[in-house]
């Protein structure tokens, strides 16, 4: 019990990242939930330590909100078939993601499809 508590505490402090292999803990994301956001790519940040899809999503009230969708490091995206220009500004995409626990407009990407629902890149 004590050992488990120590492990949990360390993981919570981000010294260990139990599921994500990112440079930070993935505790910020609610992996029990999935959301699918449809929107327009504003920028595809092909950057270390994480790539981000900046996408503008129009809500039911007509208000535009920019979401930050986190991905892994570019080398891993590359290994899974992604390229720096896989997503181009202005294109419409659907992103399935685990949302931020905070409720802020962001999440970690599960997969991405184009406007017609066709897979973009791969996740393998």
């Amino acid at each position: 019990m004590k050992k488990f508590a120590i492990v949990a505490a360390v993981a919570g402090f981000g010294l260990l990242a139990p599921v994500s292999q990112a440079h930070h803990s993935n505790a910020m994301f609610d992996t029990s939930r999935e959301v699918t956001m449809r929107g327009m790519v504003r920028e595809f940040q092909w950057t270390n330590p994480h790539a981000y899809i900046q996408m503008v999503v129009t809500g039911a009230d007509g208000r535009e909100v920019e979401w930050s969708m986190e991905m892994g490091a570019p080398m891993y995206l590359y290994a899974r078939g992604w390229r720096p220009r896989t997503l181009r500004p202005g294109s419409i995409i659907n992103v399935r993601a685990h949302p931020l626990r905070s409720g802020e407009p962001g999440g970690v990407v599960v997969d991405v499809t184009d406007a017609d629902g066709k897979a973009i890149g791969t996740n393998q």
Binding site: M28, S68, S102, E104
Partner: peptide, 14 residues
């Protein structure tokens, strides 16, 4: 060059 790790008071965030 793009570490967007932040903290919202309870969890890390973007």
């Amino acid at each position: 060059d793009n570490d967007r790790t932040s903290f919202d008071g309870e969890f890390n965030t973007i």
